[in-house]
């Protein structure tokens, strides 16, 4: 790898991690805005979004520049491709956080509407998934990425449970339909955040193993055993 490429790659990494720090904070604040009914946090999240948008464009340009200038191959190419996709996912997660914050400020007008107990749990799980996905990216840890992907099922299960609970409550007290609907979409957004975390994890697996695992039923390597992983990619 040429020195220039290496330096540019390092800068690209710094940028994407800076962006992820903002996005992670946005998820936290959006979650707090929702679960603790804090309007200040909601406003902060909405404010941060433009920063994330700018950074997304910046990182994408950086990646394209790297591709055009250095024409990287093998692991460098996969890395840049992964950053491009993760960049996209992070931006979408930021948007979802903004949506959650908006829902939260709506819900906060209905003091009598209690947020279901499972919502903070689910939000925490989604947050941990994003964190786990980015940690897996930092450490090039395909195993970590796989375990994050597996937790997505739990988030989906909770999503179903909470939505059922909300539907029931709407049936019981029609006056709470409006906040319940807001809550409903907030929960859907949390679930989407989990999905994006899964996407990031799939990119990490691709980066590490050179194997596209998207849309695969079984996330384990096709033939169990480390030797297979090694033969699949001579570059690591």
């Amino acid at each position: 790898m040429s020195l220039h490429l290496q330096r540019d790659m390092e800068r690209m990494h710094r940028e994407i991690f800076s962006m992820s720090s903002i996005v992670e904070e946005m998820i936290d604040k959006a979650t707090l805005a929702l679960c603790e009914r804090n309007d200040r946090f909601a406003a902060e999240v909405i404010e941060s979004d433009s920063q994330v948008d700018q950074r997304e464009v910046l990182i994408e340009e950086e990646c394209l520049k790297l591709l055009a200038l250095h024409q990287p191959v093998a692991v460098d190419l996969r890395r840049i491709a992964s950053v491009l996709k993760i960049n996209n996912d992070l931006e979408r997660i930021a948007d979802l956080a903004v949506n959650i914050a908006q829902r939260a400020s709506h819900i906060n007008r209905f003091a009598e509407f209690p947020i279901p107990d499972d919502v903070p749990v689910m939000a925490r799980m989604a947050r941990r998934m994003v964190q786990g996905a980015l940690d897996a990216f930092v450490h090039l840890d395909a195993r970590g990425a796989r375990s994050v992907i597996r937790t997505d099922r739990d988030v989906d299960a909770l999503n179903v449970e909470i939505i059922e609970h909300l539907t029931q409550r709407m049936r019981q007290s029609p006056s709470l339909v409006a906040p319940a609907l807001h809550c409903f979409s907030a929960v859907r957004h949390i679930e989407r955040i989990g999905d994006h975390a899964t996407n990031i994890c799939e990119d990490v697996i691709y980066l590490v193993e050179g194997d596209i695992v998207r849309h695969q039923q079984f996330l384990e390597p096709r033939v169990s055993g480390a030797s297979h992983e090694q033969t699949q990619d001579p570059h690591h």
Binding site: E10, H13, R14, F17, S18, S20, S21, I22, E24, E25, L134, V138
Partner: peptide, 13 residues
């Protein structure tokens, strides 16, 4: 290691 790799906290950065 780069700080962003180990501690992704926006206020810190």
């Amino acid at each position: 290691r780069p700080l962003v790799n180990i501690a992704r906290h926006r206020p810190l950065l």
